[in-house]
Nucleic acid binder design. Structure first.
Lengths: 187, 187
DNA sequence: ATCAGCATGTAAGGCGTTACATGATTCA
DNA sequence: TGAATCATGTAACGCCTTACATGCTGAT
């Protein structure tokens, strides 16, 4: 029960559903997971090697044609590690929002800059929310399977928080603009 | 306009209001900022040294008594760097929620475990929300200064998103329990 | 032909965390 | 006197990002 890397758990989690290549794993991570977890090739391939060394996964040659394509399968030991991780109630949940940093220190710049920084953030959130809504719609069409609910729950977490972000953006812009106006009137 | 580290900007931002020691800076970061940004001594002290080397801040001996206490001041050059950073509209906003990972892969464990993981998360959010509400109350009592609104905005961002988290927690637990019940009935 | 996408991997560097090391002060 | 807090710093390690290097395949 060594302190496994999170990327290991992501890989094991994905492989618990289907066999995948490193490249496929990257694509899956870039999908619905991407708004709360990231991964890169420079991250994934070394992790696959370590997991294979630890016998948590096995590789089989999946080249239909001779190129070195490898599909990975999870082993029983891998499933156990995944189960242990789920049972461990400690979880690191972190946010690092540079935008909030810029708002917090907004007094060091003009109010217009702060409004602009909020607008840039707002646009990004709107785009991401669209993406999440698309995922959600796709899930509703698809026949309900066992894991469906879990995917839906994470997507809905994203949708709800992003909606809260957008509400905050409106409020924040209004508040800053109001203060700009107050100042103008008192001049 | 080199690609400055974010911790540098946090330090400059804090020093733009008041002179502080490294130890004080840590305390400030652990305050209202902590829910969207982190810092550690192993992070802060080397950054202070680099900022001093780059003449963005200056140190003066603040030992009332002979111990090597140093208070840092921001320089004009430091203020400019801070202003440039605020003007730069690109910002990295990331969340890494292991809890969501555990929910996403919840199918690999029992439903009870998923409910439990949500509850652990929920309790943490409730505690943090209390803290944020306290900050908010303190801000409302304090006389309104220039930067007040900016502090308020980031705190209110936290409050709003944490409320959305809690609403999601209730919904998610209900959904999982409902599915457990459905299954029991169809047995 | 050429470009996008499939596919695997390595290397350097950046940044941050944790633990360690040290010592003074203040308050109970 | 002992514990908590103030105060500064270093060192090792972990983990991830970015960029690089390589080559095949399928569609236009």
């Amino acid at each position: 029960m060594a302190r496994e890397k999170k990327i290991d758990m992501v890989i094991l989690g994905l492989l618990s559903h289907e066999d995948l290549t490193g490249y496929d794993i990257k694509k899956r991570i870039d999908g619905a997971i991407s708004f709360f977890w990231k991964g890169s090739f420079g991250n994934i391939y070394p992790a696959l090697k370590e997991l294979e060394d630890g016998k948590l996964i096995t590789a089989k040659d999946a080249s239909e044609d001779g190129r070195g394509k490898k599909a990975y399968q999870i082993t029983q030991k891998g499933r156990e590690a995944l189960g242990d991780w789920l049972l461990d109630e400690q979880a690191s949940n972190e946010i690092r929002y540079e935008t909030l940093l810029k708002i917090f220190f907004g007094g060091a710049g003009s109010r217009q800059i702060s409004v602009h920084n909020i607008e840039v953030f707002e646009r990004k959130v709107q785009d991401d929310l669209k993406m999440l809504n698309d995922y959600c719609a796709a899930l509703e069409k698809d026949p309900a399977n066992e894991d469906h609910m879990y995917y839906y729950l994470t997507v809905s977490f994203g949708i709800e928080t992003y909606k809260a972000y957008l509400a905050w953006c409106s409020k924040a812009k209004k508040m800053i603009r109001q203060q700009m106006q107050d100042e103008e009137e008192s001049r």
